[in-house]
């Protein structure tokens, strides 16, 4: 069992998203073993862990792009374990995918419109677009540019805007700072703060554990497909196994 440093996240409320005792196999290989996560409305939850520990697999379990071998996935009170990806994402989940994944022949504007169209609130209004451009001012000059030609930092902004424009209740992001210059990494975490201010829940996978723990309300730590540690960020950050095995090396 995982080492639980703080008893409960928010015991009174129903979690927005919950994984209950989920295991995932890739053929014979077991990538996740009996993991449980809870993400409450408006909460930023960080998922930490070393390489190949099962972080991306956890994300895929939420988005439904991998098959769950055992366990259950809930959206609010509804069981969505086997719901197809588009339908569950349309419930109110925005995604900032690993590697940004632009629709490269679509313009920035079209990327945003597409993000809104398939969300729970439907077509993007003029105000929605204006809001996103205010949130990411560098995109203002780029709206009609094909997203495929943008820089990595610009694409990351488009990826965030595309996830936010659909007014999600939860945004999931897999290593959003990966491959970005330090200044942009800082910006990414500012944006996450901004999302948090808007009372949107975030589930973030990060190798940059310090930065992630700084914005998070709660954290899980994976090792070899199992949750080995979970709790409030300060507790996690100071847990002996973390400082030794994980945070220590990176700082």
């Amino acid at each position: 069992m995982a080492e639980q440093l703080q008893n409960a996240q928010m015991p009174d409320e129903t979690p927005l998203l919950q994984l209950k005792n989920v295991s995932v196999n890739y053929g014979k290989f077991r990538a996740l073993t009996d993991v449980s996560y809870r993400i409450y409305p408006g909460q930023v939850v960080a998922l930490l862990g070393g390489n190949a520990s099962g972080k991306s697999t956890s994300m895929k379990t939420i988005s439904g792009t991998t098959t769950v071998t055992a366990g259950e996935v809930f959206w609010k009170d509804e069981l969505i374990t086997h719901e197809p990806t588009p339908r569950r994402m349309a419930r109110g989940i925005g995604v900032v995918p690993e590697g940004r994944r632009m629709f490269s022949s679509l313009t920035v504007l079209e990327n945003l419109q597409l993000g809104a169209w398939a969300g729970s609130k439907g077509r993007a209004t003029r105000e929605d677009i204006a809001e996103m451009l205010d949130l990411f001012p560098p995109l203002k000059k780029l709206v009609h540019r094909p997203s495929g030609v943008l820089s990595g930092g610009e694409q990351q902004m488009v990826a965030f805007a595309r996830a936010l424009i659909r007014h999600p209740e939860l945004v999931i992001m897999d290593e959003p700072s990966m491959g970005l210059a330090p200044a942009l990494v800082k910006r990414v975490f500012e944006i996450i703060e901004e999302i948090k201010n808007r009372k949107i829940a975030v589930f973030i996978v990060e190798q940059n554990a310090r930065a992630a723990l700084r914005v998070a309300d709660y954290a899980y730590v994976l090792a070899a497909g199992q949750v080995v540690l979970e709790g409030k960020p300060d507790m996690v950050a100071t847990a002996p196994m973390m400082t030794e095995a994980y945070l220590g090396k990176r700082s």
């Binding site: 792009t65 990806t85 339908r87 989940i93 995918p97 994944r101 398939a118 969300g119 659909r166």
Partner: peptide, 12 residues
């Protein structure tokens, strides 16, 4: 452009 990501965006 990207069928898998379109699904992630909720595109049917």
């Amino acid at each position: 452009d990207d069928l898998a990501t379109a699904e992630l965006m909720g595109v049917p």
